[in-house]
């Protein structure tokens, strides 16, 4: 087992762990997005989706635990990399100009921390709640409050920014970089992050401005 520890503690090892757990989280995000999209098909469809999903009691539990582990590893390694990188240049430049960094890549640790805060709020709102409301009523009760809606929108923007760099970055870390598909990969990663952000953000926006939402 010694060699696993040796590999995982190298810089590329740590980055690979980030990339693999990141892939898992993005796959989860995709399924979460598809599930949430049921909301656009009306209240009944949405509630039916929630009920059917929770009928798979055991499978849901297994996935929840898996997801929790993915999140914990991703956060642990991100924190480790962030702290290490803070010390990599003790004396900073007086003048430093950026050339190819993007908003996404520059803000990775901060958007990541924002997502973590969001995750806690989101779980308190929708998971660790003992109300007897149906899911559609629960969504209405939370997201029609302007403060919550605004918080959700800001955090979801951070999420979109995070994955705008994350999707391309995880491919690069895992060695997926060849000229024959690089353009497709970059534009695909960008459009995917915009699409994911837009669809998720549409939900609090509808709750906030469209009073018939989920009625």
């Amino acid at each position: 087992m010694g060699w696993i520890k040796q590999i995982i503690t190298t810089s590329i090892g740590k980055k690979s762990v980030m990339a693999v757990t990141g892939t898992g989280l993005i796959i989860f995000l995709f399924f979460h997005l598809v599930g949430n999209s049921m909301i656009f098909l009306g209240r009944d469809m949405f509630n039916a989706y929630a009920e059917n999903l929770h009928r798979l009691d055991f499978a849901v539990k297994v996935f929840e635990i898996g997801l929790l582990i993915l999140f914990l590893i991703h956060i642990l390694f991100a924190t480790l990399l962030f702290i290490e990188n803070l010390g990599s240049r003790p004396q900073r430049y007086a003048v430093k100009k950026d050339t190819r960094r993007t908003w996404g890549s520059k803000t990775m640790p901060y958007t990541g921390a924002t997502i973590l805060v969001f995750l806690v709020v989101h779980l308190i709102n929708f998971h660790f709640t003992d109300s007897n409301l149906t899911l559609s009523e629960l969504v209405r009760s939370v997201l029609t409050q302007p403060y919550y809606a605004a918080l959700y929108i800001i955090c979801l923007l951070a999420l979109a920014l995070h994955i705008s760099h994350g999707i391309w970055s995880l491919c690069q870390t895992l060695g997926i970089n060849q000229p024959k598909y690089n353009k497709l990969l970059e534009s695909g990663a960008r459009s995917l992050s915009i699409a994911v952000g837009a669809v998720f953000i549409l939900i609090p926006l509808l709750a906030l401005f469209y009073s018939n939402f989920l009625l």
Binding site: S11, I12, K14, K15, L81, E84, N85, G87, S88, R89, D98, T99, R100, R101, S105, K106, M108, H165, W168, S169, Q172, T173
Partner: peptide, 9 residues
């Protein structure tokens, strides 16, 4: 040295 962040700088 620090860890690569795929920043392309």
């Amino acid at each position: 040295f620090g860890n690569c962040g795929n920043e392309r700088e």
